[in-house]
């Protein structure tokens, strides 16, 4: 096949993006584990590993820029590079959100609202991320649409979780307790709400990845926004 080096560069970019997604998914999984088990060392592993994710992002950005500048890609090659360029930004931000989860885990020492199943929401976002990356890897347009459709359910789960917390706040005035307890309670609640919000954002990034993959596969921008 002509342009052997170019074809290899495209192939390497695909492999590298998929590798980055595996690293980020692992960090998200560890962040959720740290939250569940209140495991400080796991949380610290996620926080300290963020530099690696950021460096991967910068390296991949460089790969994309080099391909555009040096190889003048067109058609499906161009869409692949443009989509990958955007997808790595989503992956890097998911990495940041995994770091947030780890930091919440390090700050928290007790569970509040056990009825809010953070792990279930987290498992759903992780699954959406992996499904979006599989759609990218397999160039599967149906799978892209499927990820986007799951986002409504995830949003509903997050909305229900937030409502549970807010309703409890309204019904049970925490300021009736002593100040230290009230402050700790409010910090726990804030962390929980932020956790739910961050997981909901992971889902949004998974949808972005699916949307960019659909554009890559079929030049179809219908899932973008």
């Amino acid at each position: 096949m002509p342009r052997q080096e170019y074809q290899e560069s495209l192939s390497n970019l695909r492999e590298d993006v998929l590798y980055m997604s595996e690293v980020v998914a692992e960090r998200l999984r560890l962040g959720l584990d740290a939250l569940e088990q209140k495991d400080r060392s796991t949380a610290e592993e996620v926080v300290s590993g963020d530099d690696e994710v950021n460096q991967m992002y910068l390296d991949l950005e460089g790969e994309c820029v080099d391909l555009i500048a040096l190889q003048q890609p067109v058609a499906s090659d161009l869409r692949f590079i443009a989509a990958s360029f955007k997808i790595i930004t989503d992956l890097e931000r998911i990495g940041d959100l995994a770091v947030n989860l780890a930091q919440y885990a390090m700050d928290a020492d007790r569970d509040v609202f056990p009825e809010v199943d953070v792990q279930q929401i987290g498992a759903e976002t992780l699954d959406m991320l992996e499904a979006a990356m599989a759609a990218y890897a397999n160039e599967d347009p149906e799978a892209c649409h499927a990820v986007a459709e799951r986002d409504d359910d995830l949003d509903a789960m997050c909305e229900a979780a937030s409502s549970t917390v807010v309703r409890d706040l309204i019904e049970h005035d925490p300021f009736g307790e002593d100040d230290a307890d009230a402050e700790a309670y409010l910090q726990d609640i804030s962390r929980l709400l932020l956790t739910v919000r961050d997981l909901e954002r992971v889902g949004d990034h998974a949808v972005n990845i699916a949307a960019r993959s659909l554009y890559m596969i079929e030049d179809d921008a219908s899932l973008l926004y």
Binding site: M1, P2, R3, Y6, Q7, P73, V74, A75, S76, D77, L78, R79, D219
Partner: peptide, 19 residues
Amino acid sequence: IFENPESQRVEDYITGKFG
């Protein structure tokens, strides 16, 4: 043509896969 050609042969040609 350069973003999403209809023909696979055109796609292959402009992306340098043959020619």
